[in-house]
């Protein structure tokens, strides 16, 4: 099975947000009460009922203005912090297609994945189970496109074999974000500016301590003996300041 991925070409996005709704429709996610905060962007952040969202970013360039749109969601990292950190085997996992899916029955409600994610993606729902974009793994397994990618009218969102998406984008002279980060992201972006402008970390990384957890503590956990120590170490990692790249320091322009 070839690794699958999304390619999000921000230069084609019109922010129609069919991705947001198509996702909710397929995954049967209820709407939430929102208010207008002086922005088209709503809901304001990913929630247990919102697996992907469009950011609206205004940017002045001399006399001209740019209005940038970007779809934000789980990045389906190869080297996925959430999978690494998850103490419950099979709760968060890579599918055959290389996408990060989850089994809610196995989720033990620890929230560690939240801290293990450099993109602030996993959310916990009312039942305290993990939720996030799972790339419509049920659809993909059955040969269908994820609901969002199928709905996208302008091919801003495409889904397919990762190698092929990369090759085609490069052939078209497009610069990619996420090709090699974290073992290669499962969501690749074509951007029209620096990643920070799009609220993306320039060099996304899992906090170093997570490696310690994954590669040292977690295997030892088999022995049971180290378990509690491991969790304590993880506690430090997860409660400690999580440092994303300075994406959020970008000045947010009015009316975004």
């Amino acid at each position: 099975m070839k690794r699958k991925a999304f390619l999000i070409d921000t230069t084609r996005c019109t922010a129609c947000r069919s991705c947001q709704v198509a996702c909710k429709q397929w995954n049967k996610l209820d709407a939430e009460a929102t208010v207008n905060r002086g922005s088209y962007e709503n809901p304001p952040d990913l929630t247990p009922l919102l697996y992907n969202q469009i950011h609206f970013i205004e940017q002045e360039q001399g006399d001209d203005l740019r209005w940038l749109f970007i779809n934000r969601r789980c990045m389906h990292c190869a080297d996925a912090g959430c999978v690494k950190v998850c103490p419950s085997a099979g709760a968060l996992y890579h599918t055959k297609e290389g996408l990060v899916a989850y089994n809610r029955e196995k989720c033990i409600e620890c929230h560690y994945c939240v801290s293990g994610c450099p993109f602030d993606v996993p959310r916990y729902d009312a039942k305290q189970k993990v939720t996030k974009c799972h790339a419509c793994s049920d659809r993909v397994q059955n040969g269908l496109l994820p609901a969002c990618a199928k709905a996208c009218p302008t091919q801003a969102l495409s889904f397919g074999d990762r190698d092929q998406l990369i090759a085609e984008a490069k052939a078209a002279g497009k610069k990619l974000y996420g090709e090699n980060d974290l073992g290669g992201l499962g969501v690749l972006y074509v951007l029209d500016d620096e990643p920070g402008t799009y609220r993306l970390p320039k060099n996304p990384a899992i906090p170093a301590s997570i490696f310690f957890w994954k590669d040292v503590v977690k295997p030892l956990g088999i022995l049971g003996f180290w378990g509690a120590v491991g969790v304590a170490a993880l506690h430090y990692v997860t409660i400690g300041p999580k440092k994303l790249d300075d994406a959020d320091d970008q000045p947010r322009k009015g009316g975004e």
């Binding site: 419950s88 977690k218 003996f225 969790v231």
Partner: peptide, 9 residues
Amino acid sequence: AGSVLGIGL
């Protein structure tokens, strides 16, 4: 914790 962590990684 071992019971939680001790299965397939």
